[in-house]
Computed example of a mutant assay.
Amino acid sequence: MTQTILYARVSTSEQTLDHQRTQAEAAGFVIDEVIADHGVSGVTTALRDRDEGKRLFDKLREGDTLVVRWVDRLGRNYQDVTDTIREFMRRGVIIRTVINNMTFDGATTDPMQEAVRDALIAFMAATAQAQAEATKEAQKAGIAAKKDQAPQAYLGRKPSYDRKALDQVTDMLTQGAGTSVIAKAVGLSRQAVLRIKADPVHAEVVLGAWEGREA
């Protein structure tokens, strides 16, 4: 019996997971099961290396439909996303996205349709990676500018977060998680999360200054 499985990469909140399922169902999907990874960075962790991502690879069978909000949920970069989609298609799994209702199916044998499908997969994966890289570069530029303007301004009180915590907060904010949920998951005060949210570049510079001082 075939299944329709929603894979979500969420913060840690069941509410956030419910929101993703609600979005999928509102788009017309009938979901049989939800598989979700919590608190995992999609930028640094391949799908196969995520706890529930491994289970997804084990579970999907020919004829199943895999639903994701967008293709960036399936990997950490262009190569990872395209490899994952193609492997699932070779297995006979249909991949569908909530955003734009895209469908990727390996059943076609028409070479022209295959070419169009593969080009679209490549374009979407490349776009997702480009957007992530552009965000990182903009943040780096902002950090460098602030350091040049007032380097001593960032050597005040030591921040309450370390590198791992800052990365997790930033990732969860990108996914749309609430500040209270993030604070509880990461072990920071809500005020600390709000400060990071208000000025992530400043938060990065503060931490970088202290890392340099303690090196």
Rank of each mutant, 00 (worst) to 15 (best):
Q23S: 12
Q23V: 05
A24K: 03
A24V: 01
E25A: 09
E25I: 02
A26H: 11
A27E: 03
A27T: 06
V30Q: 10
V30E: 13
V30W: 08
I31F: 04
D32Q: 12
D32L: 13
V34S: 12
V34L: 13
D37P: 06
H38P: 15
H38I: 10
V40P: 00
S41T: 00
V43Y: 15
T44Y: 09
T44M: 12
T45I: 13
A46E: 04
A46T: 13
L47E: 07
D49N: 12
R50L: 14
R50I: 06
R50P: 07
D51H: 15
D51K: 09
D51N: 14
E52N: 07
G53N: 03
G53M: 01
R55N: 05
R55V: 14
R61H: 13
E62C: 13
E62M: 09
E62H: 08
E62F: 04
E62D: 02
E62P: 08
V67T: 01
R69V: 15
W70F: 04
W70R: 10
W70A: 10
V71L: 09
R73C: 08
G75C: 00
R76M: 01
N77W: 11
Y78E: 00
D80N: 05
V81L: 01
V81Y: 01
T82I: 13
D83P: 03
D83C: 09
D83F: 08
D83A: 12
T84W: 08
T84C: 04
I85T: 03
R86A: 00
R86P: 01
R86L: 08
R90P: 02
